[in-house]
């Protein structure tokens, strides 16, 4: 999992933004679970990774949060700030493009 951690360092922001853009509002644990399921348990986001990322993105204004009472406790949901959607889309596209380039470069035939 260490190599995953290394790669996540520069990409987690964008992964979170993409998940929130495509799924609407989500809470921290839900993002961890979604990532785990989608990657067949290969990427396991820790609390120490996901929450600082969410908090930072919220501070930067790319996300905003709302609170709701669920099962008698408070749950914090994150949403993509629609006024920043252009920037969010551009970050996601840049990473997708980079991943495409990586795929080409890492092709076994090269």
């Amino acid at each position: 999992m260490d190599s995953n951690k290394k790669f996540l360092n520069g990409t987690l922001n964008t992964i979170v933004l993409a998940l929130l853009r495509d799924n609407g509002r989500m809470y921290g644990y839900e993002i961890c679970q979604k990532t785990k399921e989608a990657t067949n348990n290969q990427i396991n986001l820790t609390e120490g990774a996901i929450y600082p990322t969410l908090h930072r993105l919220e501070k930067e204004g790319l996300l905003f949060s709302t609170k709701e009472k669920v099962n008698g406790r408070v749950r914090k949901y994150y949403h993509v700030n629609q006024s920043s959607i252009k920037e969010v889309n551009s970050q996601i596209n840049l990473l997708a493009q980079f991943v495409g380039n990586l795929r080409t470069l890492l092709k076994p035939s090269l």
């Binding site: 809470y27 644990y29 406790r73 749950r75 914090k76």
Partner: peptide, 16 residues
């Protein structure tokens, strides 16, 4: 707020 958020995280985990 962080305690509140992480409490929800761990309770969600237990429920799951």
């Amino acid at each position: 707020h962080t305690v509140e958020e992480l409490t929800d995280h761990y309770l969600s985990h237990i429920e799951n």
